[in-house]
């Protein structure tokens, strides 16, 4: 399912909307390139298919070695280092309050840029980059999957599947990183 990440990365770094052509046919669009398609990286975490806009993505790597950071929330795996930049690496499944997932050869770290800083999200597998037209997006239904609802920015229908688009601002909210029972510094 997951293609070699390097190829994948190169493919979307290199190009454009051509990558969307398969999907275009599937949806009956002409090959004429639409300017309003949103390109998203589709990836697996648990049983669901998630998506992140590729504009939020800096890099995809294989799991990297991390140093645990004391006093942080359970979902914080630690800090990793990518070419000299230190970044927090989190376990996406735990962050979404899903059961813990094992690291497998397909596991990847999505390095995302949020609020000017890099963060690593460990996911089960990366699937593909897809182009999604605006009309395929839906707001997150209020009644959906209680605990996770807050992390969802939107849903997108794509080739008969539903892509859950994550809201990085919520996912990476700094106040959640410090463990709740560590009150921070005394005033």
């Amino acid at each position: 399912m997951a293609r070699d990440t390097d190829d994948l990365w190169q493919s979307f770094a290199r190009t454009g909307e051509q990558l969307a052509s398969e999907e275009d046919y599937e949806h009956g669009y002409s090959r004429e390139v639409r300017q309003d398609l949103r390109r998203c990286l589709a990836f697996h975490c648990g049983d669901e298919l998630y998506g992140l806009s590729i504009t939020e993505l800096a890099e995809i790597t294989k799991p990297l070695s991390t140093t645990p950071v004391p006093r942080t929330a359970e979902f914080v795996i630690g800090v990793g280092n990518i070419r000299g930049s230190v970044l927090p690496v989190i376990d996406l499944a735990r962050r979404l309050r899903l059961p813990p997932r094992p690291i497998t050869p397909a596991s990847r770290v999505l390095v995302v840029r949020h609020a000017g800083e890099l963060h690593g999200l460990v996911v089960d597998a990366v699937r593909d980059v897809v182009s999604i037209p605006p009309e395929a997006f839906e707001p997150p239904p209020g009644a959906l999957a209680g605990a996770r609802a807050g992390f969802i920015a939107a849903l997108a229908r794509h080739g008969g599947e539903i892509l859950i688009l994550l809201d990085l601002a919520v996912l990476l909210a700094p106040q959640d990183f410090v463990r709740a029972d560590v009150g921070g510094r005394r005033a």
Partner: peptide, 23 residues
């Protein structure tokens, strides 16, 4: 810097690298 997310962890001021790529 540990970045905004981890900056507020009390008792940790930052990170550095020692040999062997260890953070």
């Amino acid at each position: 810097s540990l970045g905004a997310a981890l900056r507020q962890v009390p008792g940790i001021a930052g990170a550095t690298e020692l040999g062997g790529g260890r953070t």
